[in-house]
Design a protein around this nucleic acid. Structure first.
Lengths: 108, 108
DNA sequence: CTAATTCATCGCAATATTACGATAAATATT
DNA sequence: AATATTTATCGTAATATTGCGATGAATTAG
């Protein structure tokens, strides 16, 4: 155990939970915010902005890339990271739908 | 290690990541959906609806309660769970702000 | 060609998460 | 009082996550 039983859930449930993971760590929230707000997309500057080691930041970036919400433009020796607009919008819409599916019914 | 360095992040970053954790597991997404969409709030019926053991469902409910996004009305031997409207709205607003903070700038 | 720079990855350690059977707690039913 | 119902919690096991130092890979600068 320790493993999520992904097989028994729907594609959508798994996708939403994966998208949520992008925001489920303060460092990743900070990274996504920096990338979302910056006029230009920051690169290794992220390491300077964050109170974590370069290795750790790199690992978070890898996770965000796995989810697809950011992408990296390789321009060696640098890599320029930025939000993937398509996935960002997918996340926005998915969460939007989920949040608006709540109908008050005053049961509790 | 294995522990998130919460101290070095802002309150808001920590709060958002915590709220995101509510959605960061397919079972919790399923639970929140059921509670959000149901006319009446489901109780132990959640266990029947989910492909997980009672103990596991109870653990996910505990985590959702810790975050605050659901609350349970004890009516022994049953407990009636439902969305906490205040926290649900807090999450909706926080994610809404975050998502809308993205300004396309066509860097990558 | 030799640094220097930037970033990814490896290896390790420690904690967190996920899952479940078994059991306990609390009440309603008989 | 004894039993059944419902939910929480404990204990255990396995995997995942977080974090970092060290190292490697790739390119640029000197």
């Amino acid at each position: 155990m320790g493993t999520t039983k992904s097989e028994v859930f729907t594609e959508e449930e798994n996708r939403i939970s994966d998208l949520a993971k992008a925001f489920a760590h303060p460092a990743r929230v900070a990274i996504l915010r920096l990338l979302a707000e910056k006029k230009a997309c920051v690169c290794g500057d992220l390491v300077d902005e964050l109170p974590l080691s370069q290795a750790t930041v790199s690992q978070h970036l890898k996770e965000l890339k796995r989810i697809g919400i950011i992408k990296g433009d390789i321009a060696p020796p640098r890599v320029c990271y930025c939000i993937d607009e398509v996935v960002w919008n997918e996340a926005m819409q998915s969460f939007g739908l989920l949040f608006s599916s709540y109908l008050k019914n005053g049961c509790c």
